[in-house]
Design a binder for these strands. Structure first.
Length: 206
DNA sequence: TCGATGATTGAG
DNA sequence: TCAATCATCGAA
């Protein structure tokens, strides 16, 4: 018996949800019927119109419309002309248009298909980053907007046995609002992102 | 329209 | 350290 996370789970704001998603089971059901799954080990919170790093910062656009809808829906966007990133809409009544980016997972089932999708069978290279995770799990823009609280959704999140110590840090890969400690990850998990060494550019910009 | 940029990744 | 690669968005 597995327990599917409810709309209420997602409706508590991005910080609570980002933290509590660590250790949960991400389940992707393909149209073929095959099931891919993994444990979420890294996430980041993105606020609404008050977070300069959020896609929702400048208000609603064609791309970010899903963020302004109900919590518990997937927001998938395309970036760098190459990769997709998976988020879950999480806002509460007090915090509009926020979301949680799923940055990494530890593969549990469907590793054979993931290996084909990723063109590698090194386990820690399958879903150890937001773009890699989407590629491994066959997630693209067509899935943006799906209601992940529905039992027949192609993307779902379930409770799991995994209760890791949750660590916290600054977010990765953004150029503004860098000080917020809004990244969460499972302690000592080999799939979490390695923090990039600070570049000269970053040092110059302070 | 037009140009800059990006919640990244992998190769060199 | 840097190129790939293109949808998006604000400015013109």
């Amino acid at each position: 018996m597995t327990r599917l996370l409810s709309r209420e789970f997602y409706a508590r704001g991005p910080l609570v949800v980002a933290k509590e998603l660590i250790g949960k089971k991400l389940v992707r059901t393909l149209t073929s019927g095959d099931e891919l799954s993994g444990l979420i080990v890294e996430s980041e919170a993105y606020g609404g119109e008050s977070d300069p790093a959020s896609h929702a910062y400048r208000g609603r656009t064609a791309r970010n419309g899903v963020m302004f809808g109900k919590p518990g829906h997937a927001y998938v966007y395309f970036t760098y002309g190459v990769h997709y990133c998976l988020n879950f809409v999480t806002h509460s009544s007090s915090e509009r248009a926020s979301a949680v980016l799923i940055r990494a997972a530890e593969p549990l089932s469907g590793l054979e298909i993931m290996s084909i999708n990723r063109k590698t069978n090194v386990p820690t290279q399958l879903a150890s980053g937001p773009g890699k995770l989407c590629q491994a799990f066959s997630i693209d823009g067509q899935l943006s907007g799906v209601d992940v609280t529905k039992i027949d959704s192609p993307i779902k999140v379930e409770e799991s046995f995994f209760k890791p110590r949750v660590m916290r840090s600054k977010r990765i890969g953004i150029s503004v609002a860098r000080d917020r400690m809004w990244r969460f990850y499972a302690d000592s998990n080999p799939n979490v992102s390695k923090i990039p060494r600070m570049s000269n550019r970053s040092l110059r910009e302070g």
